[in-house]
Design a protein around this nucleic acid. Structure first.
Lengths: 176, 176
DNA sequence: TTGTAAAACTAATCCTATTAGTTTATAGTT
DNA sequence: AACTATAAACTAATAGGATTAGTTTTACAA
């Protein structure tokens, strides 16, 4: 295997730091190649096309998201800690979070879901209801991040408070 | 004003039907121009650039979303009806819904918020808590639509049921 | 009827992604 | 140590986007 200085991992790491520093829209073949001091066509020796690169990015970004959540303090309100960590990750690393959306691997998705499931253990839910509850929780958090990105919340009311209230309402709804 | 057959409204309507029929990514200067049987540069006589066109689209799309929600039956569970109408609109008109996200006008945004506020009247909330509750509700619904679009919910569990449960949990949380 | 200005046009520039075809360097084999 | 096959880079090209400059056309107003 000749000239294998350049690896898939290097390409994905370069693409992710591009997303992190200049936004997800900056993830182009031209920009990735420029960052690596190669020409765009060379990338096709390692990935079929840009879509494949973005899929690989999603997997790596999802792992970073997972690790950020896993390292969260599990205090008295595990769902609130999780929510804050999730929204904080999405808001402070928008490019990375956007990178994670296209999908990723089944295992990491599952691990992420398990993290939420762990926060739900204190509520008596059968398997199906647990899945519904997890979907609702993720929807809430993702929607909060994404609406914010689209400047959805215009009023001058504390965002962090909104997040706390939202999670508070949801948790009380699970209890009753 | 010479040759004013082409109006801003015609351009926006063309762009919206492009989004509706071929997806939001199909909203390009080239495609809009092609649909109108003109050349792309002609569009710049009416709009500064593509971004401005997309802003105008957002306003029109948001009105359509508002009207779809306004015409909703206000039964015993107004928030559930609203949620179903919202998610149904987002899922069955993904291009239109995506068009609405970049913003729109303040008045329409406000009207949309008011629609949710109307569904919240039976709950005793002060002004600030009402805003938090509205933000949470919108986050939930938008997140549900968007995660679905990104194939976020992989498990074979009824989606409509998930939506009902999610709204049910939130409403119970508001009550307690 | 003529002049002006709006609205179309053509042609060009500068981005993308992607493919074809070519060169080069290296790893493994003789 | 020389040879060869191949991976991995390259150049050059195509096709599609947004946008700008400059030109022509046309409708209306004076």
């Amino acid at each position: 295997m000749p000239r294998m200085q350049l690896t898939k991992t290097m390409i994905i790491e370069t693409a992710l730091s591009l997303a992190e520093q200049q936004g997800y829209e900056a993830v182009t073949m031209a920009n990735i190649a420029r960052s690596l001091s190669i020409k765009p066509p060379s990338l096709y020796n390692h990935f079929k096309n840009l879509e494949e690169i973005k899929h690989a990015m999603a997997e790596a970004a999802q792992i970073q998201l997972y690790e950020a959540l896993r390292d969260t303090e599990q205090g008295a309100q595990p769902l609130l800690s999780l929510a804050k960590a999730y929204v904080h990750f999405g808001s402070s690393h928008p490019g990375l979070y956007a990178s994670s959306l296209p999908g990723g691997s089944w295992e990491v998705s599952e691990a992420l879901v398990q993290l939420i499931a762990d926060g739900l253990t204190s509520f008596p839910l059968d398997e199906t209801d647990k899945i519904h509850a997890i979907r609702g929780f993720r929807s809430m958090l993702h929607g909060f991040i994404d609406l914010n990105k689209h400047a959805g919340f215009k009023l001058d009311v504390d965002l962090e408070k909104s997040l706390e209230q939202m999670v508070g309402i949801y948790v009380r709804g699970l209890q009753s």
